[in-house]
Structure formats: C-alpha cells, structure tokens
Design a protein around this nucleic acid. Sequence first.
DNA 1: GAGTGGTCTAGACCACGGT
DNA 2: CCGTGGTCTAGACCACTCG
Lengths: 234, 234
Amino acid sequence: MTQPQINNWQAIQNEVLRRIHAREWTPGQVIPNEVDLAAEFGCARATMNRALRALADAGMLERRRKAGTRVALHPVSRATVDIPVIRQEIEARGLAYSYKLITRATAKPPVLLGPTQNALHVTALHYAGDAPYAFEDRWINLDTLPDASAQPFTKLNANEWLLRHAPFTHGDIRFSALAAPARHAKRLGADPGAPVFVIDRTTWDHDQTITSVRLIFAPGYSIHTTIGRPPMAD
Amino acid sequence: MTQPQINNWQAIQNEVLRRIHAREWTPGQVIPNEVDLAAEFGCARATMNRALRALADAGMLERRRKAGTRVALHPVSRATVDIPVIRQEIEARGLAYSYKLITRATAKPPVLLGPTQNALHVTALHYAGDAPYAFEDRWINLDTLPDASAQPFTKLNANEWLLRHAPFTHGDIRFSALAAPARHAKRLGADPGAPVFVIDRTTWDHDQTITSVRLIFAPGYSIHTTIGRPPMAD
DNA sequence: GAGTGGTCTAGACCACGGT
DNA sequence: CCGTGGTCTAGACCACTCG
C-alpha cells in the first residue's frame, strides 16, 4: 500500500507537520481537501478533520469553507498561558499565602470599567511568606455586582470572592513592564522606578463589566509557558 | 421531554458552563459521565465528548479515565498568546520594518542551550520605522544547524531564517520585566535601568536544541490577549 | 476487574462562501 | 451553484487507572 496506514489523529498531525517542515507543503499553499487526505492516509474523514482542526487551532493552518485548507502564511506560534490565581501560585511554591487590604472605597471608576458610575475601589497586598508578592489595584462594578459593597475584603481576597460569586465569561489581559510607582514600590520592597511586571485584566459576564484589576508584581516575577507539543512521537 | 434537545456541542458547552457558574456543579465535584450526559441532552456521546473536552482544554474541567470528569478546583483561566514574529508585529501597525545586525560570532554557548559546544551568537536590533523596537540576543546551536554558520544574517533576520530552515517542534517561553542593561538601553532609546519587557525563548526540534533568544523590547511594549469565548449565546 | 474517557469509523446533512 | 469544511450520529474498540 502507498501509506503505512496512519490512522490516529496525532500521527496524522505529525505527518502533516513533517510535510510543512519539509516544505512539501509551503506557506500559503492550499493542501488537499479532507476527503482526499483521509483516503491517502486510509483513515475516516472525521479523523483527518480532527488532525487538521488541531493544527488550525495551533495556528499552523488556515481553513475556510470552500476555499480549503492552506499552510499559514506566517507560521504563527500560539502559546497557552495559565492566568495566575495568586494564592495558588504562591502555595505551589511551598510558601504561605497571606493578604492585606490597604484601601477600600466607593468611587467613580476609570473609563476602562465602562459607563458605570458606581464602583468599588480596592487596593491590597499579597504576600508569599513574609515577602510582598504583588500589589493589587482593583475596580469592581457595583452596578452589576451590588453584593460586593457588603464585602469588607479584609480577610477574603477580592479575586477569590469574585471567582466564587461572579465568574466571568470572557476577559482581556495585558502584560507589560513598568517602573514601580514610588508609593507602591516601598510596599513591594522595591526601589522606586524599579522594573516590575504588570498584568492588567478586565473581565466580563456576557456584556456586563465585572472588574478591572492591575497587578504589580514584586521584582523578579516572570511568567513561564510552553509552545507546541512536548511528545511528538512518530 | 426533559431537555429541549440541545445537540450542538457549543450549546452543550454553554449549558455545562452555566451549571458551573450557577454552582449546580461545584469545583471539585464529579459530574455525570459522558454516556449519561449525552442521554440527558439527547445527543451522541461524541458530541458530548467534544463539548467536555473543549472545556477541559480551557481548564474548566479535569478529566481522567475511570475517575471521571470534575469541575476544576481552581477555575484556572487559560489564555492563548500569539508569540510575536517581530516583522509582522511591526508591519501590522503600519510601520516599516527594518533590521540591523550588531554582532555575529561563534562562541561557547551559555548552558541554557544545552550541552552544545558549538554555537553562533548573534545580536541585532529591530526597528519600527525609525524607532528601535527590540534588541535581540540569540544563540544558535551549530551542532544541529551547521548551515547557520554560512549565514551572514546581515540582511535576513535570524528568526526568519530559522523559521524557514529549522522549524521547531516545541518551545519554552518566559516573559519578564527587567532593567535595561546600560549598553542596550542606549540602542533602544531608553534610559539605563528603564523597565523593559523581556521575552526569553528556547526552541527545540524534537530533542535537539535549535536556538535560544532574548528579546528586549523598547519601553512601552506590552502583550495583549484574551480569555474565554466572546460569543457565548444560549 | 471494570468503569471511564479517548478515539476511530462510515455515513449523513448542513453552512459558508468562492466562482 | 456547488465544493469545502463543520458537525452530528450510532456503534465500536481501546487505554488508562481507580478501587
């Protein structure tokens, strides 16, 4: 037979990747359709679909109905990043997590929270053991979450309360590097102007803004992730 | 009938999410198995599988054979980040991309590249229009990529040459914030010690190290991404 | 050992979107 | 229009792993 009967989707995926790497299929080029490829590999179309769809999800292929499947022009690499839940992140390092509320006040929110006129502003510090870990600056939409106004947030971390009472459907995240603002630097045990890793995140429940938060991490923080599949056996 | 015949996997996914959000299924709790749920929703098991598997990929569920499917203890959020290919990133902003080689030398590589004794060290600057965009400090494994030693990298960006000649199977990425080293700060148009966003990336082809690169971005750089599904219609 | 998820199959219908 | 991918089905076998 022409093909050694590849019939599991991961092996098929690897063979497709091999052809792309070997430039048998070049970026921009349309590859055969699912039916033909399934016939070539001797597998069901559903299996072929699974393999190609996974590669499309990974950014290696672009698929459109009728137009067919083509190798992505720009072999974009896509990494999945786990968004840190601070307590877990700290406890995973074998350190004791603790939390301290700094301020809590109702105020007119910044624009990024949307047209809300009613918001709760919370600032707090997260500790890993005795060392400050991250400073949190959070706005909570009281129009969508009136219950939040009854929460002191002295013991329970705002993020954990929100996860429990107002899970989000989608969100928006930005990673950046900033100079530590003088007033926060001291709290983080950093020199003013020291480089700090910052995560800005806004989350929604359907169309409702829930919360917008800036996390300023103590110096040395980094996010680690992986790209592609570690196994990859033929 | 007990259920209004939900039979497309996205609708099923939404219903499962709704139950998690509504705490009908709580974190840590084992949910019914695929066969039972498929019966409840009046769909095929394969469809149920697709919905649950997608949620597991997203980090909402944890699945193990025999143990069953449970709601993730920590509703971990997983975001997909497109790893920047600098030229595209710049051109997508409507700016002209240009590139300038700074140094190129063979040298003993740092440990992070693996047990290689033979490596090419390249440093370069990427420009967006006239402004410096990112400083690149790269090591290329000459044991696995002897062809690289013939490349001048004066015109063609090392990253683009590598994408073309040595695509990777997997990689490792780290995002962090550092103080701009004095000698690089000037090149980036930044003050020495200014906070800069840094990406460290190492890539492999199967078990072979290909390259290890540090990208130091000019001040103001950030990475943006999204979490969850925008649509989410019932 | 046995229950659960992981996957494959062969066939079918549908939705999108180039031509 | 009509080719292509997107999805669903009903059934089957397998692999893992918990008890």
